[in-house]
Design a protein around this nucleic acid. Sequence first.
DNA 1: CTGAAAGCGCTTACAG
DNA 2: CTGAAAGCGCTTACAG
Lengths: 330, 330
Amino acid sequence: MVNISDVARAAGVSKATVSYVLSNDPRITEQTANKVRKAVKELGYTVNHAARALSANETKTFGIVSPAYHSNYLSGLFGLHVYLMSECAAQYGYDTLFIGNDDGAEAMLKAWNSRKVDGFILMDVRDDDPRMRIAAKMNMPTVVFGSPKDSFGLDVVDSDFVKESENIIDFLESENHAEITLVLWSKQIFKRRLGFALRFYDSIMAIADRHGLVVHAVSPDDDNADPTQIIEQALDAYPQSTAMVIYNEPATIVGPRTFAQLDIRVPDDLRVVTVFPKQLVTTMKIPFAAVQTDVGQLAKASMQLLMSRVANRDAPKAEVLFDFPLVIEP
Amino acid sequence: MVNISDVARAAGVSKATVSYVLSNDPRITEQTANKVRKAVKELGYTVNHAARALSANETKTFGIVSPAYHSNYLSGLFGLHVYLMSECAAQYGYDTLFIGNDDGAEAMLKAWNSRKVDGFILMDVRDDDPRMRIAAKMNMPTVVFGSPKDSFGLDVVDSDFVKESENIIDFLESENHAEITLVLWSKQIFKRRLGFALRFYDSIMAIADRHGLVVHAVSPDDDNADPTQIIEQALDAYPQSTAMVIYNEPATIVGPRTFAQLDIRVPDDLRVVTVFPKQLVTTMKIPFAAVQTDVGQLAKASMQLLMSRVANRDAPKAEVLFDFPLVIEP
DNA sequence: CTGAAAGCGCTTACAG
DNA sequence: CTGAAAGCGCTTACAG
């Protein structure tokens, strides 16, 4: 494999000069630089990553650490997240290391200690997440994708659940719904204290209460419960509700079929509002009013935050919350 | 950050000895090894990845290179694949680098030339895929996840489309269906020559023909076509068909709702067979007969192949094809 | 404006 | 059974 010495020899300069050219050091003459670039091209040279990382003490790689499974359930969103983050990272010249199938905290610590990455994105964060503790303690550049109660001083990106809830409740009120049913993520997810589930619940309950709406919250016992049954049970239990808010991925996917089978026309017989990634609303043709989460924007923002953080470890912590629109006509 | 010299000093041995202990070299006494291990633990030492990689010339990292988007459509399977492969890799002490958002071939070449990975898994391979050409030409340890017509001498893992097709056709014949409709992946995907789409089509058509079944194949023009409409059009165009085989992810997801809306009872009014990942059949409660692809097995097999290939670049090429069962009662 | 040289933190023949 | 030393391929003060 061709190395920097080969290039230096071919271009008739020193290794140092080659290195400077590669990092666009302005001290090198355009003429010299061109000789070097030509040699690089001709020899098909690529910097050895390990050597560069060892010497420069940076890897140009970030770790995306995800528990991935919400208990047994793998979200369709997951792949989208990985893909989009990686795409953003590439624009900054960063590669993406996928970390943590089981114990994310441990895998993260190992990646950090071995200096395999420059920073982390934490997916599916829960309150009191050990990954956050470790990141904070070791001062690892880290952005938290999610809404933990305490972010341990780490940078945070997420949807603005308060605004989302307000939008939903305002809309339902404008349609004069007085009693609504909430189909939420499973109890397993609540028990694991996943931020998105907790924050959404807290905020929508608070706001509905303030507006004097009657809310019936329903949450399946576990993730693998049949989502169709969840919906049916919710309908049976609260027939007086005129609207249903679904914040549960499988239930959203299965919802259209379930209502069709029960001969419930949406929105005429029942107004249904969901919270779902914009990208999947389209793909899966979800025919509900939906707060369309834009995963692309979230990915972009978290990458930007991470880059800033890597550049300046001591910058004040940032928090970016997105107010995604409630789209009535899908 | 604590390094190997710190450990050597603390344990009262040389750096070489520490390194040998870390790689479980049998030449080191148990006694010495224990001293070293104690020091490692006390100091919280982790091998510096870049240094190790540079010196040993192996990264213990593989690249999973995926175009990810089948044109505009991101498969729900994608995340599952990434997750499961990464999980398998971890068992071999390998990390997973996610590669290639746009030009996979170029990104792959760069990762290889910079020696950032030891090998690759190629996702969503198409006939004549430039990634395969490059992998073969540069002799990169690579396993192809998919069924290209020509695998360029690379290792291959996939479903056995011939057997799948036989199972489906045998089953339909046993139920006395004489005329069936095939809902396939989009024309975009066929145009891009994705192996799974082409191979499935070829094999099921051949086998149906051999059995004297009449087959009507339908394929949406593009990936973002409304899958509901595809199904409706297929039903309209071929009302005489008594069975429908769906090999198209969005159509499978949307299928149950579509049939419900049209008041078509499955399987009484229409037998429906799909090909779908076992894991998602469960999650999405797909109520169809299904060839349940086990992504876990595929991931495991490809990882094993890759490990063998890394260990022996000159071993004869391997091909592992899985005959996944057709499950009638979901 | 360019180069000689030290150093990053490991591994691995080789010697003893 | 263990250690001294070379070497992996870069980057980066420093000198000129």
